[in-house]
Structure formats: C-alpha cells, structure tokens
Simulated assay, not measured.
Amino acid sequence: MPSPEEIAKLPYRPCVGMLLLNGDDKVFVGRRIDTAREGDNIWQMPQGGIDEGETPQEAVLREMEEEIGTAKAEIVAESRQWLHYDLPGHLVGKVWKGRYRGQKQRWFALRFMGRDSDIDLATEHPEFDAWQWVELEDVPGLVIPFKRDTYRAVVSEFRDLLGRR
C-alpha cells in the first residue's frame, strides 16, 4: 500500500458520471459486478473515464452505451464544477494500476428517451449484474461509502430537474 505522502502526489482520474432520469423521475442505478461477487449490495450511477481528445459530453454518451447498452438519452444539465473523491488508501495501489488517488468527475443529468427493454447490461465489458430505477433521494445510501459525499452533491445539484420534461 502506498504511503499517504505517495498518495497525495498522485493525480485524480478525469471522469464523467451520469444521473439518468426516466419519465417517472426515477434514477438508474446498477449493481457493480465486482462488489456483488464479494457479497455486497453496492449500486452506483454509470460513470467512466474521459478518453484523450474526448469532451466530457462525448464521454458521458459513450460511457452510457458501454455500461448499459444504450445511448437513448439527452443531456439536460451539467454540473457547475468538477467533483472529486479519494479512494480509501487500501484501494489506491489496486485500482487503475495505482496511477490515481481518486477521480475528478464532471456529472451530467440525462433524460432517458428509450424503453427499459433498450437497457442491456451484457455489454463487451460488463460492469453491472443488475439494475433498477430508484428515487433520487435514495441514491446516496446505495453507494459505496467513500462515494457518498459526491453522490449527495450530485443529488443536491440536480434535484430541481425533477418534475421537468
């Protein structure tokens, strides 16, 4: 495990996250395969890295298709600022080949324009083994603890989108 000083020198991984709303203002969450194998019931909103030369807007639509098998959505809002989270020390050397201390994320709210049957978790590199639509306020309580503050900020920023179409 890297020392706290070594961790502090590592950069944050540039990333996007998506709060995907359906027509009933419920939020998409997927259960992570890696935590389900360990017997945990950890859910999260889709997120992923920004490729070189890619804008955050391009990345969020690509990541959505890669993680849930569809890009049938429109971007309706973007977070005002980048949000950061740090990995717990014991994960720093294991995740992303030890190159990052955590993630800096640009979050987007998207309105899902497809049907539930358009969602297909059997993607080329599956990340989720189950999915569900949940109430916005319930999302932070479903995620791994070190991401909860970030998720609370996302919920707070996008809460006013509920009820708008």
Rank of each mutant, 00 (worst) to 15 (best):
P2L: 12
P2I: 09
P2H: 12
S3K: 13
E6A: 14
I7G: 04
I7W: 08
I7P: 10
A8C: 06
K9W: 03
K9P: 01
Y12V: 02
R13A: 12
C15L: 07
G17T: 10
G17P: 07
G17W: 00
M18H: 02
L19E: 02
N22A: 08
G23Q: 00
G23C: 01
D24H: 12
F28M: 04
V29G: 04
E38K: 15
I42A: 11
I42V: 12
W43R: 04
Q44W: 09
Q44I: 14
I50G: 03
D51G: 09
E52D: 09
E54C: 04
Q57I: 02
E58R: 15
A59F: 05
V60W: 03
R62Y: 01
A71L: 09
A71V: 06
A73C: 03
A73E: 00
E74V: 14
S79L: 09
W82Q: 15
Y85K: 09
G93Y: 05
G93K: 15
W96I: 06
W96K: 07
W96R: 08
W96Q: 12
K97C: 07
G98M: 02
R99V: 13
G102D: 07
Q103E: 13
Q103H: 12
Q103W: 08
K104D: 12
Q105K: 13
R106C: 00
W107L: 06
F108G: 00
F108N: 00
L110R: 06
R111H: 02
F112V: 06
M113R: 14
M113K: 15
G114S: 07
R115G: 11
R115T: 13
D118T: 02
D118K: 00
D120P: 09
D120H: 12
E127N: 13
D129F: 09
A130S: 13
W133M: 01
E135T: 05
P140R: 08
F146C: 10
D149S: 07
Y151K: 00
V155S: 03
E157D: 06
L162D: 02
G163R: 05
G163Y: 11
R164W: 01
